[in-house]
Design a binder for these strands. Sequence first.
DNA 1: ACCAAATGTGGCATCGATACCACATTTCGG
DNA 2: CCGAAATGTGGTATCGATGCCACATTTGGT
Lengths: 357, 357
Amino acid sequence: MSPRGQQAARAVQQQPVQPAQPSVRRPTVQDVAREAGVSPSTVSRALHTRGYASPAVRARVRAAAERIGYVLDHNARNLRSRTSTSIGVLISDLRNPFYADLAAGIEEELRAAEYQMVLVNDNGDPAEEMRAAETLLAMRVPGVIVTPVTAKCPRVLQENGVHVVCADRELGRGNGDVVMSDNKAGARELTDHLLALGHTRIGLLIDETKWSTGAGRLAGFRAAHLDNFVDLDEDLIAYTSFDADAARETTRKLLNDHDVTAIISANNVLAQGALAEIKDRRLKIPRQLSVAAYDDVPWMSLVQPALTTVDQHTVELGRSCARLLLARIRGELPTKRRIVRVPPRLIVRGSTGPAPR
Amino acid sequence: MSPRGQQAARAVQQQPVQPAQPSVRRPTVQDVAREAGVSPSTVSRALHTRGYASPAVRARVRAAAERIGYVLDHNARNLRSRTSTSIGVLISDLRNPFYADLAAGIEEELRAAEYQMVLVNDNGDPAEEMRAAETLLAMRVPGVIVTPVTAKCPRVLQENGVHVVCADRELGRGNGDVVMSDNKAGARELTDHLLALGHTRIGLLIDETKWSTGAGRLAGFRAAHLDNFVDLDEDLIAYTSFDADAARETTRKLLNDHDVTAIISANNVLAQGALAEIKDRRLKIPRQLSVAAYDDVPWMSLVQPALTTVDQHTVELGRSCARLLLARIRGELPTKRRIVRVPPRLIVRGSTGPAPR
DNA sequence: ACCAAATGTGGCATCGATACCACATTTCGG
DNA sequence: CCGAAATGTGGTATCGATGCCACATTTGGT
């Protein structure tokens, strides 16, 4: 070991473990080069770059780096090579299991490809969303996965040369690739299931229909009615806002004002509100009322009876987003915008049964 | 790079440029300086740094930057100033609502302070954990929040000058600040509650007791028995592994081999398994069996009957971690290691009742 | 045996922002 | 009215790694 290397190692060890001070001077490629008796360029090539270095040198450099505890500096590398291995992920609410699963799938795939995930919550707020986009631009991320609130966000990112994959929803046109559940098909299948059980008055609890998500689910709901020649009473489409309490209130009105025999919640949060109200009324599920939801989350199989749901394979959705984005970044994809529709799966459980009389 | 490599690189560049990939040459401080008729140094000071710039100049520079669409380059800044506003967050499983909530709390606080969260899942695997730590070192993050799997991880980070806050568990001694639920107090209160209801044979479903988390909860369980002069049958402490299926199996054995009148799950995942088994047996809760869990998550109030739990204020736990870490980074804290114990809250719901006969 | 191509390595400029110091200009006490 | 202090602003080196090219050495074909 060179005197320099020894000193460096000793310095680190002498550093009191408690107060982590940034004064720890970390070894650089220069130091490794000196230690290994080669030039900095060679160190760079030997350690990280695709460039050539003979096996012997490579081994020597690796050993030297190891010995003096060298750690690459991503900032320097990113600056020089004008790239980054950080990917921005911009979602609405990590506490919602849908987004958490989505992020988990994304992270899994990114990690496997040696990328990092920078996760930002925007709380569904356009202003927060734009602030986050700005930050990600500043970080020079090569790509962002976003559940967009506004079309502006993906647009601005793209204008600045950042690849964008929209997850779960499509906003506007031409704003990056999209990965989402086939909402129409899923909702249609779920509605079909209820119609087949004899229900003709099915309430749909839904929060938004402007984005492709809600629009698709509503379209599927309508389509199933058409398919089955059942007239759809528009009053049974219960618009609510995006939180469990509002959903509960809306469910109350729906049950009071219309004699529905089944209720579909358009997502897992609304289902929470609906179920709370239904439990409160001590309605027998499914004898008096059938209940189902789009977006299967763990608790839905734990309640009694377990809920019939549409599983949109959220984790896999996330993985797809990441794979697609990485392929884009690597330039492996044709220019044309890609829209991936992941087929969901109907899971029939105990909460849906024949319509009463 | 070898000639082969060079050729390859050239070939790639000659390919028709992808849509979002063009070498969008982004403006730099130089450009802003030209536009505003000042020097780069002044631009830097006017826009970001604490250094002085007269209000007039500041406004002029701001306007110029806005006009030409200037965006700061974090990599360059980080490199030069040897700091970063990215914070590493290293957790076991984002799909577990506990970790998701923790991360959500952390992110919220970080975002408010203009920091970014780099989130990594380690799946509870020591090797993954170390790989992640290495990556975070390479990113030159000033701090990391980690639910440690191994004491090595926080130690190595600290040795390299990175501030560490351990979340949810304490591993070893002197490895950074810690923020956790007051596990002993929470478990004691929960156990007290059951003992007060007349239960004397309470099963404890627990996965690990080597970390402070499990150890604390077990200690609380024991302490409550002592307090109430109830002999604790060691066989009722049912050790299982960290997943719902194992917990279910263990619950089965516990119910088969020991006539417990109540079961406590040490965390939300185990509770899932326990409940599945109990549901399967169609045991009446709480008439035949009382059920409770440490770590309140949303579904626990949706099942019938709703579960009695200990709420550890997970989101707030996350916020505390972030606040503590930021204070450390800013050097606002005394050297001494800080251990924050967040008092949990017992939530009594319908799943616990008087012991049968 | 000779020259051209192939093969390894080193040198140096550079990515973009900022720390630091120098310097021009203003302010103001005596 | 003078010089010292205060006040703004500009110049330049630098953070650490890598792209690019030059160059020394080896290989191989004829």
